[in-house]
Design a protein around this nucleic acid. Sequence first.
DNA 1: GTCAAATCAATGCGAACGTCTCGAAAAGAG
DNA 2: CTCTTTTCGAGACGTTCGCATTGATTTGAC
Lengths: 179, 179
Amino acid sequence: MKPARGRGAAHDERRGAILEAVFAIVDTEGTHQVSIRRVAEQAGVSVGRVQHYFPSKDDLLTAAFTAINDRGTARVQARLSESSPAEALLTELIPATDEDRRLFRVAQAFETHALTNPELAGRLRQGYDELIAVLTAMVGDAAKKLLALALGLASLTLTGNLTPEEARAIVRSGIEKRG
Amino acid sequence: MKPARGRGAAHDERRGAILEAVFAIVDTEGTHQVSIRRVAEQAGVSVGRVQHYFPSKDDLLTAAFTAINDRGTARVQARLSESSPAEALLTELIPATDEDRRLFRVAQAFETHALTNPELAGRLRQGYDELIAVLTAMVGDAAKKLLALALGLASLTLTGNLTPEEARAIVRSGIEKRG
DNA sequence: GTCAAATCAATGCGAACGTCTCGAAAAGAG
DNA sequence: CTCTTTTCGAGACGTTCGCATTGATTTGAC
C-alpha cells in the first residue's frame, strides 16, 4: 500500500541520487541548465524515473532547495555541542574544502532563486531567523552582526577575494571583539 | 559608417531600454524567465530589434551584468567625496528604498550567475578587489571585515531578516568599533 | 538628389523544453 | 501461485527556445 515501496530504503536512495544530480548541475553549470532530461542524464537514469519521484519540475526544485537547507542546518546543529559553540558555529558558515564550496555555491544559487518565489522566500527567512535565535542565546545582541559578517565572508570566499583561512580568522576576531 | 548610428543617443537609449526590460524580468520573475522573446515583449519591441542590439543571448546577459556592475560602482563612486567616506560608502551597500531592493536583487542574481561563468567571475572578483583597495586606504586592515559585514547585512536585508535601518545601524557600529 | 549603412519586423528552423500517456517489469501481500 | 501496487522506460504532444535569414524601411554621408 502506501508504506510499501520496495524495501523503503531504495526509495529514498534513488530520490537522493536524483537530487545529487541536480546539485552537480547547479554547481558546475548553473541553475539554468537544470532540466528534467539533463538531470536524468546526469544521474544515469531515465526521464520516467525522475518524473516518478518528482512529478513536476517545480517539485524537483523545491525538494532540492529543502535538501540543501536541511543539509546546512544539519551541519550547524552538529556543532552546537562544541566547547566554544559560537565560534564553531560561525566558522562552519565559511566554506573551506572543495566539498564545502560546492555546498555553498549550490546554496547561494537556490537562495537567489528563492528571492523570486514567495514560498521559498518564507522558508529561507525562517531558517535565518532560527539561526539568529540560536546565536542570540549565545552572544546576545551581537548575533545579527556576527551572522552577517559570516555570510559576507562566505560570499567573498566564493568569489575568490578571500581565502578560507582569512575568512575564518576574521570571524574569530569578530567574536573576540564583541562576543 | 561605424560611429553613425542615428543621432547616437537613440542607439544607447534603445539599448538601455532593452536592458531595463531584462532587469525588470530578473527582479520579478527570476533569471530563468529571461528569453529573447520575453525581453522583447517586456520592452514592447520586436524580437528583431533585441537581436540587432544583442546578437546572442549571451551578449545580452553579459551586457546586463556589466550594466548592473557599472551602476553599482557608480553608486559607490558618487559617495567618495563625502565628509565621512567610509560610512557613506558602506551604508550605500545596504538596500534602503524599493528601487535599491530591485538593484540589489538583480545584482545578486547576476552574481550567482557569474559564479558558473569564468569570465564574469573574474570581473566580479576584480570589482570587489578594487572596492577592497579603496576601503583599505580609508580604514586599513579592517576593510575586508567591514565589506563582508556590509555584504552580509545586505543579504539579510533582502531576505527580510533585517530592516534597512537595523542593517545601517549595525554597519555604523562596526565602523565605530574599529574604523 | 544617390547610395550604402544601419535599423528592425517577420518568419522559419531545428532543438530542447515540461508534461502526459501507455505498457511492461518488479515486488510485496494474500 | 494470483493480484494489486509500485516502479519507470519509451515515446509523443504542443510549446518555447536561440538563432539565422530575408526584405523593407530609415538614416546619415556625400
